[in-house]
Design a protein around this nucleic acid. Sequence first.
DNA 1: TGGGTGTGTTTAATATGCAAAACATAGCGA
DNA 2: TCGCTATGTTTTGCATATTAAACACACCCA
Lengths: 262, 262
Amino acid sequence: MAKASNHDVYFVPGLFRGLRVLEILGAAETPMSLSDIARAMELSRSSAFRLVYTLRQMEFIREAEQANTFTLGARVLNLGFAYLNQQPITAIARPILANLRDETGVSTHLSVLEGDDVLYLVSHQARSGYVSNMRTGTRTQAYASAIGWCLLGNLDEDELRVFAAHQNWHRFTDHTPMDPASLIARVTEVRETGFVISRGFREPGGSSVAVPVRDHSGGIVACVNLSGPDSGFDFDRMESFYLPLAQTAAQEISRALGHQGG
Amino acid sequence: MAKASNHDVYFVPGLFRGLRVLEILGAAETPMSLSDIARAMELSRSSAFRLVYTLRQMEFIREAEQANTFTLGARVLNLGFAYLNQQPITAIARPILANLRDETGVSTHLSVLEGDDVLYLVSHQARSGYVSNMRTGTRTQAYASAIGWCLLGNLDEDELRVFAAHQNWHRFTDHTPMDPASLIARVTEVRETGFVISRGFREPGGSSVAVPVRDHSGGIVACVNLSGPDSGFDFDRMESFYLPLAQTAAQEISRALGHQGG
DNA sequence: TGGGTGTGTTTAATATGCAAAACATAGCGA
DNA sequence: TCGCTATGTTTTGCATATTAAACACACCCA
């Protein structure tokens, strides 16, 4: 992340640093002390003290069991849920995906493209067996998954080239594209077929079916997907059973967003 | 909410107000303009301008479709879900149940459904008298106790039928259900009332009050219960004293898990 | 016992964030 | 067309937030 310029006349450093405290606490695996926070932010203890003092008073952070250490407080959740609830697509998709989960027995998700990432907005876990690690609020690199390719289908040729040009390629599986050309090829392919069935594209042993959701303008605004371990899917029925159900759900959401036809 | 004192030496006003901007935008139903925000916060436009400027630069808020209006940005989601992922239910529940134990004088427990069993995660023994045999890590068959019926309320109709179909029925007390139909009846009843008060259901002479805990998805993820020997409870006050306290504790835990409302 | 290091907290000089007021622009109705 | 009002933006003197440094306390090891 680009460091905020101190010369920026309109910048409020107290706010900037306070939010960074929250993010650092969010990324931390264990509660942090005041000094931990100061070190992590390369800030004087006295300044960190004031930030922590303010955040604690607002209940955005709270003391952990161990004295003088802090974790995020429940109040940050309200912000997250407020965001989710403001995305009208989540309200529309939630019951449809719950139903899709019950029909198929595997986990269902709705995701959107947010910057370079796939952001999961709605997530219904399979009732039994495998529990996916893609919870609501999770982010994953768009270039590396079938869901990402599906969502990237919304970019036009130029945008896609720009996107592809600045990725940090990392091989997750043998299917991970490792250069712009192969990513573009994948996206193009998905755009034409209108769905992806993946088997271990993002994680070995994990499979998924992904279908785009379109709004009134016809653009791809989200992606419905089924996911689970290979063992949770019946591969012979991928196209005959899982795919049509996912398509029906995606169409239902699309229609609710004003998508015509289809 | 108490207004932050301006005389408070350690307070960082910029942070306080910036977070309030986020909360106001979170509570708003439509995007807000700079002036809207300034009005809502009773703040000068110039100050609101600087806050909005900073938040936008950090991508905690973003411009809505309509120019010069703002909504929450996706980055707030990271905070909310970082909180959820790092708050194990046990850490949240422990102090709350310790307090509940002190208020009621009887043993308090938090349990989850694990396979076909009730698994006790947190356990606070009554300070005096009877000591329950339900320690942390203990398992009991879910079908046979009030706590189990409470937790089974999370299963849907089909799942519950499947569950009920493969139990090895064993009569612990006269109250133990001995066939699928009576188990399903019990679970349905508890789901509707929202609590169970049991007297010797699992063990003769042992009583309990059980209340479900729900997470952000609304599902039942755990169960708070009070338990003790009949001699430890004042039966006339089960509904008037013990139950409300247990419900308050369960609500507190639920809220910390992101359960909205209620 | 005593020095060393770490912690959270307080202070006070100064660097800086703040808001009133001025500015620029846009929209609207008469 | 002209005023009137509301908007986002910029400026600037003043009030105040900030941080280096000092403080108090706890802990550890020699």
